[in-house]
Amino acid sequence: MLNALEAFTVVIVGLMVGVEFSVAFVVNRILDALPEDSGQLGRSHGGRMLGAVMPVWYIASLALVAVWAVAGWHHPGAGLVVTAGGLLILSVIMSVLLLVPINDRGKTWTPENRPTDWKEQMNRWERYHYVRVAVIIAAFALLAAALV
């Protein structure tokens, strides 16, 4: 049973990492290359869509890691799992304090109502997001290492 939990957790966290990596290094570059206001409209839509899905994914990933840490406490790699859980907690804290406030503003913007500094706010969001992606990649790597 523990093996199934470990594998399931690594897959769920790995998929989350893949989505966030894609947002950082693929989707945002595509949106930046779109003409006129299309990129900003795409970011607003993405903020609404992913803003609804990602919190559930982050919390579910953290819960799975916590269950793995408890169930596998006396197994090799438990320290790696606990450390990965700490990194996921850090990613949730970063999200709530740094990224969500910007995203909550950005998802309501249209070309008619966006603030004059909207690009600076999006650039700030992207810088925070790069750090968050690095944190969750490290958590994923620790979980993968705990399997070995």
Rank of each mutant, 00 (worst) to 15 (best):
F8E: 06
F8A: 15
V10G: 01
V11M: 11
I12Y: 13
I12D: 04
I12Q: 11
V13I: 10
V13K: 01
G14A: 03
L15N: 05
L15A: 12
L15W: 09
M16Q: 11
V17C: 05
V17T: 05
G18K: 06
V19W: 02
V19S: 04
V19G: 04
E20W: 10
F21Y: 12
F21L: 15
S22E: 04
S22N: 11
V23S: 01
V23C: 05
A24L: 10
A24P: 00
A24F: 01
V26C: 12
V27W: 06
V27Y: 05
V27P: 02
V27N: 03
R29S: 13
I30W: 12
I30Q: 08
I30E: 06
L31A: 13
L31S: 07
D32M: 05
D32G: 05
D32W: 05
A33Q: 13
A33W: 09
L34D: 07
P35R: 13
P35K: 12
E36N: 14
S38Q: 14
R43D: 06
R43W: 06
R43I: 07
R43Q: 12
S44C: 08
H45C: 11
H45V: 15
G46W: 07
G46N: 13
G46T: 09
G47T: 08
R48I: 11
R48T: 12
R48V: 12
R48Q: 14
M49V: 15
L50R: 02
L50V: 05
L50C: 03
G51R: 09
G51V: 10
A52H: 08
A52C: 07
V53K: 03
V53I: 13
V53E: 03
V53D: 02
M54W: 00
M54I: 10
M54Q: 09
V56G: 10
W57E: 00
W57P: 00
Y58M: 13
Y58P: 00
Y58K: 06
I59H: 05
A60L: 12
A60W: 02
A60F: 08
S61V: 03
L62W: 05
A63H: 00
A63V: 15
L64Y: 02
A66F: 05
A66D: 00
W68T: 04
W68H: 09
W68S: 02
A69K: 00
V70P: 01
G72Q: 03
W73S: 13
W73F: 14
H74F: 13
H75W: 14
H75N: 14
H75E: 15
H75L: 15
P76Q: 11
G77P: 08
G77D: 07
A78C: 10
A78L: 05
G79V: 09
L80K: 12
T83Q: 00
A84E: 07
G85I: 04
G86C: 04
G86I: 02
G86K: 02
L87R: 05
L88D: 00
L88R: 01
L88H: 05
S91E: 04
V92G: 08
I93H: 00
M94P: 00
V96E: 07
V96M: 11
L98A: 14
L98H: 09
L99F: 02
L99N: 14
